[in-house]
Write a protein that binds this DNA or RNA. Structure first.
Length: 155
DNA sequence: GCCAACGTTGGC
DNA sequence: GCCAACGTTGGC
């Protein structure tokens, strides 16, 4: 059964344009250093799941495009790179702590801003909108996915 | 740069 | 296992 996700990326690091410009429009979702978000990728995601590509920590935070989970889970190579800001000295290649999946960008959309998301009563239950929510990967219900993609693709 | 909210660490 | 201190996220 297809599931849906919202995945945050800082556009300074990897914007929807960057992802679309990558080979096969596919990027490894590096840098997740939160166990709950990691576990979503490891245990709950499946290839083909829908992804709302969200721009965070930027002047205009919000959903910027549609993407899809494009690979099985595998170790995040940045955890082993001492020069990477995501380096984790407590991790090792034979016992990797951090995992990722590849994400394939499908379409850049208009920016559906965080303010607009918050102004939409039908989306009030979205995990990402909950008070104090900081997770960089959150599940999205089928109904919320339908509403948002309909608005972005047809609206 | 501020700060609320949450996660992680480490001493006990 | 508790919990205070500290670190991080991310909108504003």
């Amino acid at each position: 059964m297809t599931a849906y996700w919202l995945m945050k990326s800082e556009p300074d690091e990897c914007s929807i344009d960057d992802a679309l410009g990558a080979p096969q429009a596919t990027v490894p979702w590096t840098g997740v250093r939160n166990y709950q978000a990691r576990n979503f990728m490891r245990d709950a995601m499946q290839v083909g799941d829908g992804v709302l590509f969200y721009h965070s920590s930027c002047p205009e935070p919000g959903i910027a495009g549609i993407a899809r989970v494009a690979s099985d889970v595998y170790p995040d190579p940045t955890q082993f790179d001492p020069k990477s800001p995501y380096f984790d000295p407590k991790s090792s290649p034979d016992k990797p702590r951090w995992l990722l999946r590849d994400v394939k960008a499908e379409k850049k959309t208009r920016l559906l801003s965080l303010a607009e998301l918050r102004d939409t009563p039908a989306l009030a239950d979205m995990v990402v909108l909950q008070r104090g929510s900081r997770l960089s990967i959150t599940p999205v219900s089928a109904e919320h996915w339908r509403l948002i993609t309909q608005e972005l693709l047809n609206g």
